[in-house]
Design a protein around this nucleic acid. Structure first.
Lengths: 146, 146
DNA sequence: TACATACCGGACAATTTTATCCTTTAATTT
DNA sequence: AAATTAAAGGATAAAATTGTCCGGTATGTA
């Protein structure tokens, strides 16, 4: 569905959000350990997200990554996905036609449309803060335990 | 959504199906031209599909690819996708957790489930023959014209 | 049998994605 | 100011995906 980079990015953002909600700033090493991702690769993805202003970073001692209250409240899953994977997967034709539309639809165009719409809606309506809360409450996990 | 290989494979299968429904066997060159795909790469994918017995090939002069009436009727989009991309995308966790389930769900688990179910259902309930008919009737396209 | 056709299969090449390493930059502490 | 901490950024490497090439094999035709 999403690229590895996107999966790591989303999990990282949620973990950072969870800690930010408790007033804790977190470092790369901590993040990678908590979401079970390769550290250096995760760093690259977080850089992207910081540049896209979807999360915030602070250098130096006691530095790390965090989400501002506003970011927690407003940054959606969709913004993360677009920042990392681009919009292609959320818009492009399932069969790969470069200009699939009602004018010249692929044979699955109208069947895929509602599913893609639902996916877009799903991503658009879930904020990092909301998902972070779910993890905080033990109702969701960012890596496998046990 | 799907890999390039999968996109080409589906488009090719539908085109072969369309021609088979009219009693025509088609060659690789024809296929690649009609679905706008790289010829040699398409050949590899078709080989896979022949091995998986989702379509049929005949060597030699007047040879080529075809779908038997039974294949037209019974082979589903889902079988193509599984043969080419494997089942991961149809089952795996959206956030990449290796064992995401009700026991330890990712924060999006229950939200993604219905969408994935719909996608599976969609792929499962559409046969190549059905999609080929749609193309035959001019209601669907396998490449961009004009 | 000889020949032409067209898929098959293996090797290889290019590109993209995933991943690592190391130096630089910024910020805090001593 | 010096030392320490941690992210930023660049270069590089490994792996997967996408794509090409070419000889081999099966099949039909003359």
């Amino acid at each position: 569905m999403f690229s590895k980079a996107c999966e790591y990015g989303i999990r990282a953002a949620i973990y950072i959000g969870q800690q930010s909600a408790s007033g804790r700033r977190v470092g790369l090493k901590d993040i990678a350990a908590e979401i079970d991702s390769p550290e250096a690769f995760t760093a690259k993805i977080l850089q992207q997200l910081v540049r896209a202003q979807l999360l915030t970073s602070v250098k130096g001692p006691a530095g790390g990554f965090e989400l501002t209250p506003e970011q927690l409240r407003t940054v959606t899953l969709r913004q993360l996905v677009v920042a990392i994977d681009g919009g292609a997967m959320l818009q492009g034709c399932a069969l790969g036609l470069p200009q699939c539309s009602a004018q010249q639809p692929c044979p699955m165009h109208y069947q895929f449309l509602p599913i893609r719409d639902q996916l877009n809606e799903l991503l658009r309506t879930h904020t990092i803060g909301e998902l972070a809360s779910k993890v905080q409450e033990g109702l969701g996990f960012l890596k496998q335990f046990g």
